[in-house]
């Protein structure tokens, strides 16, 4: 019983730390640059941008909990948005076409995810290789459709999805909240969510416990694909155009956030709130960089550094914890 409490407290510690860091940055920035940082345009900008990669993070998180990785999410996002754009342009941009386009995007996402899941779960090709190849394939398909340049001329109403406010907050943020809730529900309240953790901890033992690993893998990457598609819709709506190489920096960012959010890179553990907090934190960092006019390339550098340091620190505590036992 005591141990139980300690364990729960440990899980929360990471979340509290992330939240604390977020609040600290918020306060510091509010003091340093109150006029710019607290301006509604800045806050709104954060709320528009954060869902774009935040939703991808959950796809990465699921894949990582399952013991794999999904590097193709950005490719799926772009391919889905390109297909959606083709549908909408083909249908003359009527409101109905927008619905049709979004459905098409989700279908494309699910299909790509299933394809990944099939190669990983059935043919047993390592997830890293599959999704790396998948990325190439999806970008390639996107390029084949767009012939290179961005697809423009999307219906104006489509742009509203990302750019309109509801109760003063941009719509994408609501999407992010809903997705977070759904993923939290899946992880907590479905058998799949439990089986995912078991499979990620020990694939052989889960097979020997009667868990259908193939099914779990398929659902995992399909969900990832659908999340990729949702993010793709938000990105293309934000720019009101679709292109095969939008958001190419998001892969590293999602990986960083998911690890930072307390997901075990070896699989088996992960918590939705941790990832959600890490998404918020990284958006604050990014925003702070922009406002302080720090060279935006420095962000790439810092993100890489944070990723490596997080891995080193968690690795250090793992070893220490093991020795103590």
């Amino acid at each position: 019983m005591n141990l139980d409490l300690i364990k729960n407290r440990n899980v929360n510690k990471n979340n509290i730390m992330l939240l604390g860091l977020g609040v600290a940055i918020f306060i510091i920035m509010s003091i340093l640059e109150p006029r710019i940082f607290l301006r509604s345009a800045n806050i709104r900008g954060m709320f528009v941008q954060l869902p774009e990669y935040g939703i991808l993070c959950y796809g990465m998180m699921l894949a990582m909990i399952s013991g794999g990785i999904d590097l193709s999410l950005v490719g799926i996002a772009n391919l889905a948005s390109i297909v959606a754009a083709s549908v909408m342009i083909g249908q003359d941009g009527s409101p109905f076409s927008i619905v049709l386009g979004i459905i098409a995007a989700l279908l494309v996402g699910a299909t790509c995810g299933l394809f990944n899941g099939f190669l990983i779960g059935y043919l047993k090709i390592p997830a890293m290789l599959v999704t790396l190849c998948g990325l190439q394939l999806y970008i390639g398909l996107g390029l084949a459709i767009t012939k290179g340049p961005a697809m423009t001329g999307l219906p104006e109403a489509y742009g509203n999805i990302a750019n309109k406010l509801f109760l003063g907050i941009p719509i994408p943020f609501y999407v992010f909240v809903v997705v977070t809730a759904v993923i939290a529900f899946i992880m907590r309240s479905t058998i799949y969510g439990q089986q995912l953790k078991f499979m990620g901890t020990n694939e052989t033992a889960s097979k020997y416990s009667g868990i259908n690993n193939l099914k779990v893998t398929l659902i995992t990457y399909m969900t990832g694909g659908i999340l990729g598609a949702i993010s793709g819709v938000l990105i293309s709506s934000h720019y009101n155009s679709a292109k095969s190489d939008y958001g190419s920096s998001y892969t590293l960012l999602t990986l960083l956030i998911v690890v930072l959010g307390g997901t075990d890179p070896d699989g088996g553990e992960g918590n939705v709130m941790g990832v959600a907090f890490a998404v918020l934190l990284l958006q604050l960092v990014s925003s702070a960089f922009n406002i302080l006019r720090i060279n935006s390339f420095l962000k790439t550098f810092v993100y890489g550094l944070i990723l490596v340091l997080t891995m080193l620190i968690t690795g250090y505590f793992d070893v220490r914890g093991r020795d103590k036992n």
Binding site: T201, A205, S209
Partner: peptide
Amino acid sequence: LTQGLFLTRSISDNTVAASLSEYM
């Protein structure tokens, strides 16, 4: 070790690994 146990998980997790649906 490799086929029977989820080593890092708790005893209770291991106990219900094959009968999860009963506890949902």
